[in-house]
Design a protein around this nucleic acid. Structure first.
Length: 807
RNA sequence: GCCGCGGUGGCGGAAUUGGCAGACGCAGCAGACUCAAAAUCUGCCGGUGUUAAUCACUGUAAGGGUUCAAGUCCCUUCCGCGGCACCA
């Protein structure tokens, strides 16, 4: 058969994209009795730079799964949308005096065109956009429910404040303690912020991980982020004062070894003890210096410890009754525990360092090391000493005994502590969802009634925050001043907006019913589609986005909006695609590769094949233009199989086993994130086709179906060339016969003392005796056995025969 | 610093999870075709030794250990990447 002379992707890709859209093959309906499959990829932030080749990696991966599952008879939902609120768009708008809405529109249009040129099987009829008022109506609605249930509250929180721009900065905008925009000084400034009580869900966010199928490192990372620890909160009395310092510790057994205390520079007790602190000026100065640093800088161990003793203050160790000095130091954070620690320098590295620097007493309470040289931290291996009534106990026993005592004496209580902190939910920014609350002097914070949602973002002339750090919305007086929904007197709107995480915390629900005006999605659809069957996203979203959206979902479950405890059943993660120089792709490094160029030169299918073949899906990998060429060569060879095809509806004898093996391998690899080896198996298969010089129509058709999820356009075209009227997308995925995947004869490596010295070929089920006999007769083995005593023989069926000899 | 992940040819990677290290692809070298180049096809391709196939030794970041057998398990060290809560 001689069909097209050569492969021209540019002439076939558009044709098939149009045909899929025209026939609406990827538009999904709920009235369907096939099993459902909901595949989800993280929707992109439509930046001004357009797509880079990193974006299509996860999209192609789940497109492969989605396309395969459709061929396997599933009703597949595979949607796409835009996470379009955010700082870069706002900054661009400020700089260029263009409304962020307009910028967003342009960016979305560009992203969409780029994605469509890659032939993803998205159901575009369900496209969503977080900046669309009909979308953020429901983001606001969820916030109001949280508020109603007491899970939203206001708290004083420090933010990064540029003293010269007079603007709040994100951590990313703070570069080495200075402002990224102007280089000015950045300090921590306290702001009253909306917070969401995610900590109330900490326990469930840990426990329910047992019910989902996330890759293990995601589960571990989430658990560690939540950071549950059980311990005691112990009271330390201050001499000559009513004040008590509370300390959380997981090691109450070392209490006798506490020789001084350290509190955070922000600790509220400082102002209460002001009159008693003899060197308050010095302390105050230290507080000011500490306010310039972020928690991250402060907890770095490498830096030299700093601190100031609170002169005139003594705390009392509740166990040893010894008087201890009290210090402030910035390595103790107000955001974890109680903001104060008991220092046990004998058995904690940071405390030891601090004690060593300031000449504080170091007391050994666990025997096993030499505390005059370094802290002995492997406390579980030692025995308690110098510890009064718990002397001689193992540390674990000591914990039990002293905890009991502390509780009885009302000096301490058992407590569970979490590293997880509540979610700071306000931003003093324009380009986000307005928070739909009104402040009334009489009624306090009052929610807007549901019928008034969405509360739309008003137009402003200037997107910069005000001089005192309020959101740009604060300048629109006639928007801010409104009527209190409760008492109808004058009230003021909240002018802060929500963080970008808000819109992305529930978007997977909206895809189920994107145009519903009465609910975020109808009950029927939620019941039908939840949970998301497979969610793939970046590892960098593990602790924030993934946790936030699990939190919101659990809340929606609690108020009977969604029927499942968890939003996502399976979670996988892809590695980043780096530039050819092995660095993260960025405009400033000039190593960004635009997929448009690859599509133009090689075609979308080549790009897709390369994205999947480039390496281990879970690891980051540098881009290689030569690698792309190799994938195009592969598709050229697929195209030319037409020339060696013979008209037969069966697999040939020579290839039957290989065909079944390949169907199995590819089917499994596509499900197990092993796209690279799946494609390698297809390459190996066509190499065999060419070695053999002829291919049956049945073999060619099978290859096309296996390749279709990765390279949908070329396979559709060839399918049509073979004379089919129905598209390949409507075919059934090939199945394999397990019995036909095993080779009749296999080769067994024969080792002597673990080194391969020869090979024997036997039938697949050959017994140990047969292999042993053949092995010992093999040239190359015999001489290694001569004059030596056989000590042991190990046979691993189908793999290896190892003879251990002596002498 | 803390948490998580990783380190295999010149490069991306593979290795049935403790069983023949280097599948597949790229790059490179040699040959065929061509006036020539490109494309295509064929062969070689971790290192050392041997003219050479064969063969021998060596080799999975470094060091040590367990085992008949280690890229895979354990301990120590080094290096790289992701996250660290207002980038998303």
């Amino acid at each position: 058969m001689n069909a097209n002379p050569s492969y021209h992707p540019e002439s076939i890709e558009k044709k098939w994209q149009d045909r899929w859209e025209e026939k609406q093959v990827f538009h999904v309906k709920e009235s369907d009795d096939r099993p459902k499959f909901y595949a989800l990829i993280e929707f992109p932030y439509p930046s001004g730079q357009g797509l880079h080749v990193g974006h299509p990696r996860p999209y192609t991966a789940l497109d492969v799964v989605a396309r395969k599952r459709r061929m396997q008879g599933y009703n597949v939902l595979f949607p796409m949308g835009w996470d379009a609120f955010g700082l870069p768009t706002e900054n661009y708008a400020i700089k260029n005096k263009i409304h962020p809405e307009k910028v967003t529109k342009q960016n979305v249009a560009r992203f969409k065109a780029q994605l469509q040129s890659l032939g993803f099987s998205f159901d575009w009829s369900r496209e969503i956009n977080t900046t669309d008022p009909s979308y953020y109506k429901w983001t606001q609605w969820i916030f109001l429910k949280l508020f109603e249930k007491g899970l939203a509250y206001k708290q004083e929180i420090p933010i990064n404040w540029c003293t010269s721009c007079k603007i709040g900065l994100s951590n990313e905008e703070v570069v080495q303690g200075g402002c990224e925009r102007c280089g000015g000084e950045v300090v921590q400034k306290v702001k009253n912020q909306w917070m969401l009580k995610i900590t109330e869900y900490a326990e469930r966010l840990i426990n329910d991980l047992d019910e989902v199928d996330y890759i293990e490192r995601v589960k571990t990372q989430q658990k560690n982020w939540i950071g549950k620890s059980k311990g005691m909160e112990i009271k330390f009395f201050i001499e000559g004062s009513e004040e008590v310092l509370k300390v959380f510790t997981t090691r109450p057994d070392t209490l006798f070894g506490a020789t001084y205390m350290v509190i955070s520079p922000e600790h509220p007790i400082l102002s209460k003890l002001k009159s008693q602190i003899e060197n308050f000026n010095e302390v105050h100065h230290y507080q000011h210096e500490a306010s310039k640093k972020s928690d991250f800088e402060r907890s770095e161990l490498v830096k030299e410890k700093t601190g100031i003793e609170l002169k005139g203050i003594k705390a009392i160790n509740p166990a040893s009754k010894e008087k201890m000095t009290v210090w402030i130091s910035d390595y103790v954070l107000m955001s974890y525990g109680t903001g104060a620690i008991m220092a046990v320098p004998g058995h904690d590295n940071r405390d030891w360092e601090f004690a060593n620097k300031f000449g504080l007493p170091i007391k050994e309470v666990v025997k096993g090391g030499d505390v005059s040289v370094e802290a002995f931290t492997e406390v579980d291996k030692g025995i308690l000493v110098n510890s009064g009534f718990i002397n001689g106990l193992k540390p674990q026993e000591g914990i039990d005994k002293i905890s009991e005592w502390l509780e009885k004496e009302e000096l301490g209580e058992n407590k569970v502590n979490y590293k997880l902190r509540d979610w700071v939910f306000s931003r003093q920014r324009y380009w986000g969802e307005p928070i739909p609350l009104v402040y009334c002097d009489d009624c306090g914070w009052v929610p807007l009634p549901e019928k008034d949602l969405p509360l739309k973002l008003p137009k402003v002339d200037n997107y910069e925050p005000t001089d005192d750090g309020e959101s740009p919305l604060a300048n629109i007086k006639d928007w801010v001043i409104t009527m209190c929904p409760s008492c109808n007197k004058e009230g003021r709107r909240e002018t802060d907006t929500m963080p970008q995480w808000a819109g992305s915390s529930w978007y997977y629900l909206r895809y189920m019913d994107p145009n519903n005006d009465n609910a975020l999605a109808s009950k029927e659809r939620l019941d039908y589609w939840l949970p998301v069957d497979w969610y793939n996203g970046g590892m960098e979203h593990t602790t924030l986005h993934l946790l936030y959206s699990r939190f919101w979902h659990k809340f929606l479950y609690d108020i009977n909006v969604v029927p499942t405890k968890e939003p996502y059943y399976k979670r996988t993660s892809h590695g980043m695609i780096l530039g050819e120089n092995n660095e993260k792709m960025s405009k400033s490094k000039g190593n960004v590769v635009n997929p448009d160029e690859i599509v133009e030169e090689f075609g979308a299918d080549t790009l897709r094949v390369y994205e999947m073949f480039i390496g281990d899906f879970e690891k980051s990998v540098p881009w290689s233009q030569n690698g792309v060429k190799g994938c195009r060569r592969f598709l050229d060879r697929v195209w030319k199989i037409q020339d060696i095809m013979v008209d037969s509806d069966e697999f040939s004898k020579e290839l039957e086993v290989k065909m079944h093996q390949t169907i199995k391998k590819v089917s499994e690899d596509y499900e197990n994130l092993k796209y690279n080896t799946g494609i390698a198996a297809l390459m190996t298969l066509i190499n065999e086709f060419y070695d053999l010089g002829s291919v049956t129509k049945a073999e060619f058709k099978t290859l096309l179906m296996l390749l279709n999820p990765v390279a949908p356009h070329i396979t559709e075209e060839l399918w049509e060339v073979l004379g089919h009227n129905e598209g390949i997308v409507e075919q059934h995925w090939p199945t394999w016969d397990e019995e036909k995947t095993v080779d009749k004869y296999i080769e067994i490596a024969v080792q002597v003392n673990g080194k391969v010295r020869g090979k024997v070929e036997v039938e697949a089920e050959a017994s140990k005796e047969i292999v042993e006999k053949l092995a010992k007769e093999t040239e190359g083995i015999k001489e290694h056995l001569e004059n030596r005593q056989i000590v042991k023989e190990i046979y691993v069926p189908g793999r290896i025969y190892n003879i251990v000899v002596k002498g």
